[in-house]
Amino acid sequence: MKPGAKFAIGALVIVGGVALMITEGIKQTGTYFMTPTQLVDTATADPHFYNLGLKVSAKVVQGSIKRDNEHQRVDFAVSDGHQSFPVVYVGSLAEIPDTFTDANDIDVVVEGKLGREGTFHATSVIAKCGSKYEAAMPKSGKKA
């Protein structure tokens, strides 16, 4: 066999391996990323989406944040203008970024599960803040 052909076989193995790892990786680690409206609609149509780990991107409802330092718990509500639901986060408050406030329509990404009772149980809260953290900054957010 020519060296070129041998190399081609090796190359195919690598390319195939990479393709396989990518598809498998996405199948096993991909999470849905939805707006509250999308989530409520899909969950009503397909109950499989209740208690499924996913991410929701929404705005914090103004004045809804209630911090409970003693029990390491935060209650708040999120909305996208159409749908809204309460969110409960239990865990380290140190994980909540400084930028998470309910002052002026902060964008937030919550990761967790929507329970059948309609409350979203979050395992992480990531706040994004608009105006001042401008696009020009290569990095300017808070990692929760």
């Binding site: 990323f33 964008d107 105006s131 953290y133 696009a135 900054m137 300017s140 957010g141 808070k142 990692k143």
Partner: peptide, 11 residues
């Protein structure tokens, strides 16, 4: 552009 959601937030 901010077309891809990132924890680094952008306008």
């Amino acid at each position: 552009s901010g077309v891809i959601a990132s924890v680094h937030s952008f306008t």
